[in-house]
């Protein structure tokens, strides 16, 4: 589990670096989308760390599922309103979350 959290932290750091590069390249909007993606790894690492500390790692899967539901609903809402910026942001969040959930499944903690 510690290794999993460290991997999320590493992904967050790498994406923040990428966002800085994009800003330097005058790609401000893509930098924002990348920062959003980076934040998902940070949030998930924080959730995992808290549940590990409380001795409740089995609850993590449920939290991730709740994120999935909320962000999927936000994406649908953005599509209904044809809000291209919000669509990008919600898609970034969901893609990063899918990656986190796939890695989490490998830890065996969700069972």
């Amino acid at each position: 589990m510690e290794e999993f959290i460290e991997a999320l932290k590493a992904e967050n750091a790498a994406l923040n670096l990428r966002a800085a590069e994009l800003r330097d390249q005058n790609k401000a909007d893509e930098a924002v989308f990348t920062t959003v993606r980076a934040n998902v790894y940070d949030i998930c690492a924080t959730v995992c760390r808290a549940h590990l500390k409380n001795g409740t790692p089995s609850a993590i899967g449920g939290i991730f599922a709740r994120f999935q539901d909320e962000w999927s609903a936000a994406l649908e809402s953005a599509k209904t309103r044809d809000n291209a910026r919000k669509i990008c942001i919600e898609e970034e969040k969901l893609e990063a979350l899918a990656d986190v959930r796939a890695r989490f499944a490998l830890t065996g903690c969700g069972k």
Binding site: D29, E30, F33, A84, R85, I87, C88, E91
Partner: peptide, 13 residues
């Protein structure tokens, strides 16, 4: 090298 949604965002702008 852009995702479909990012391209769509830029095209809308």
């Amino acid at each position: 090298g852009l995702s479909a949604s990012t391209l769509s965002f830029h095209m809308k702008k």
